[in-house]
Amino acid sequence: MTTIYDVSRLAGVSAKTVSRVLNEPDKVKIHTREQVLAAMKQLDYSPNASARQLRLGGASSLGLLLEDPSSGYQSRFHQALLTACMEAGKHITVELFEGVKPDWESRVDRFLNEGRVRDLILLPTLCDFEPLKAHLRKRDARAVLIAPSIFDPHFPSVVMDDRAAARQIIEHLFSLGHKRIGHISGHPDHSASILRRQGIFEAYDAAGRQRPGPDLFVAGDFMFKKGIEAAEALLSLPEPPTAIFAANDETAAAVSMVAHKRGLSIPADLSVVGFDDAPIASAVWPALTTIAQPYLDMSRRVVQSLDDWDANFPGGTAATYMTRHDLVLRDSTGPAPK
């Protein structure tokens, strides 16, 4: 599927400029407009934004529901979505979703009506909240799900390869000589937790090593406090791990704090790996080796999926789009202690 970003690359302009050519052509210089139109013709790009606006009754903003704006994960996506919308010449309206209260449906309705919102973006855990998705279908609203645990045929989703990322982390630790590796997982019901465990096992299987025992897996629920408890449990084992892979950077930071309290040196005595590349990853000492989630790439795909809605259902059910990640090597990992 050709996207607005493909057009912008071929024309040598920003995605925002392409959007202006589509929506406000009089505000774009003639030469630039001709470049963009030529690129659209060459790529056979046929936007359907105008028809979409008519079908949606004049809706003008994308809507984002946040459960915990203070969390590193949600705040990073919020920032990336703002950038993606700015590039595409769109606006985003944000609302706090304060859990399942008796009037949550009416609050969502007010958000849709007063914010002129028909296209929504749902982050975990709202992307798995079935009553909300059913309510949106009833309202004929559209939504793109980011990293859902459950496939939904009605809404396209944008994900990263958690299993491959976890395998890459373990293989990195293997290359440093680590044999006993602990894992602090996220919420047990979330697909990321399940996929990352599979990735860990894949790394062990591919290396011909025996899989780690259950004592090396502790739930941290993506929370700093739980991360402290999990780190204490792992480092109190009769034979503690020489490396710990945490579900996110917040729990990895908790591991670092516990290790320092115990007088352990990172990475000389213990290597620590996080996930997400949140601001805390480079703020703690030593800075965390981590997986950089492709927040901006995922956000651009979300915006494009909403813009070209019909292309999301090639076989009658919603598509799932996979984006790439990066392993960021910093000072928190090193050779296994002898």
Rank of each mutant, 00 (worst) to 15 (best):
residue 105 E to P: 07
residue 30 I to A: 09
residue 29 K to H: 08
residue 26 D to S: 14
residue 29 K to V: 02
residue 13 V to L: 12
residue 32 T to C: 05
residue 81 L to I: 02
residue 59 A to S: 14
residue 46 S to I: 01
residue 71 S to C: 01
residue 83 T to L: 11
residue 103 D to T: 04
residue 77 F to V: 01
residue 59 A to V: 03
residue 61 S to V: 00
residue 49 A to K: 00
residue 22 L to C: 10
residue 21 V to N: 15
residue 39 A to L: 07
residue 89 G to I: 01
residue 66 L to H: 13
residue 87 E to T: 02
residue 46 S to N: 12
residue 88 A to N: 09
residue 107 R to E: 08
residue 36 V to Q: 10
residue 67 E to A: 13
residue 56 L to T: 05
residue 51 A to W: 00
residue 62 L to E: 05
residue 108 V to R: 04
residue 95 E to Y: 07
residue 71 S to P: 01
residue 50 S to T: 12
residue 59 A to E: 02
residue 93 T to L: 07
residue 49 A to Y: 02
residue 59 A to I: 02
residue 13 V to H: 13
residue 45 Y to L: 10
residue 73 Y to I: 02
residue 64 L to G: 14
residue 18 V to F: 14
residue 93 T to F: 08
residue 24 E to R: 14
residue 77 F to R: 01
residue 54 L to F: 10
residue 15 A to F: 06
residue 49 A to N: 00
residue 94 V to I: 09
residue 35 Q to V: 05
residue 83 T to N: 13
residue 34 E to M: 08
residue 35 Q to P: 14
residue 69 P to R: 03
residue 65 L to R: 13
residue 56 L to S: 09
residue 56 L to P: 08
residue 50 S to M: 11
residue 80 A to F: 11
residue 39 A to S: 15
residue 83 T to M: 11
residue 49 A to C: 00
residue 89 G to A: 05
residue 38 A to S: 14
residue 102 P to C: 05
residue 18 V to L: 12
residue 49 A to S: 00
residue 73 Y to Q: 02
residue 40 M to L: 10
residue 29 K to Y: 00
residue 15 A to V: 08
residue 15 A to T: 07
residue 92 I to V: 11
residue 99 G to R: 03
residue 29 K to W: 00
residue 94 V to M: 07
residue 91 H to W: 01
residue 33 R to M: 04
residue 44 D to E: 12
residue 105 E to A: 02
residue 86 M to N: 10
residue 104 W to R: 07
residue 105 E to L: 06
residue 30 I to D: 07
residue 31 H to S: 15
residue 24 E to M: 09
residue 40 M to P: 14
residue 69 P to Q: 03
residue 21 V to A: 15
residue 86 M to R: 11
residue 24 E to S: 14
residue 79 Q to C: 05
residue 32 T to F: 06
residue 91 H to E: 02
residue 22 L to F: 09
residue 44 D to R: 14
residue 16 K to I: 00
residue 20 R to A: 11
residue 50 S to H: 13
residue 85 C to H: 06
residue 59 A to L: 01
residue 26 D to G: 12
residue 97 F to V: 09
residue 69 P to Y: 01
residue 89 G to M: 04
residue 101 K to M: 05
residue 53 Q to T: 15
residue 91 H to F: 08
residue 66 L to E: 05
residue 61 S to Y: 04
residue 86 M to P: 00
residue 86 M to D: 08
residue 93 T to N: 13
residue 30 I to S: 12
residue 106 S to C: 03
residue 21 V to D: 14
residue 38 A to L: 03
residue 87 E to F: 08
residue 63 G to I: 02
residue 93 T to Q: 12
residue 85 C to Q: 08
residue 23 N to C: 12
residue 24 E to L: 07
residue 84 A to G: 14
residue 82 L to R: 10
residue 96 L to K: 04
residue 98 E to V: 04
residue 55 R to Y: 09
residue 103 D to W: 04
residue 57 G to K: 06
residue 99 G to E: 02
residue 57 G to I: 01
residue 13 V to K: 12
residue 61 S to H: 07
residue 18 V to H: 13
residue 47 P to R: 09
residue 62 L to G: 06
residue 73 Y to T: 04
residue 90 K to D: 12
residue 100 V to R: 05
residue 22 L to K: 08
residue 50 S to C: 10
residue 50 S to D: 10
residue 15 A to K: 04
residue 45 Y to F: 15
residue 92 I to N: 11
residue 36 V to N: 09
residue 48 N to W: 00
residue 26 D to M: 07
residue 87 E to G: 04
residue 49 A to F: 03
residue 45 Y to W: 08
residue 51 A to G: 15
residue 74 Q to L: 05
residue 84 A to C: 11
residue 24 E to D: 13
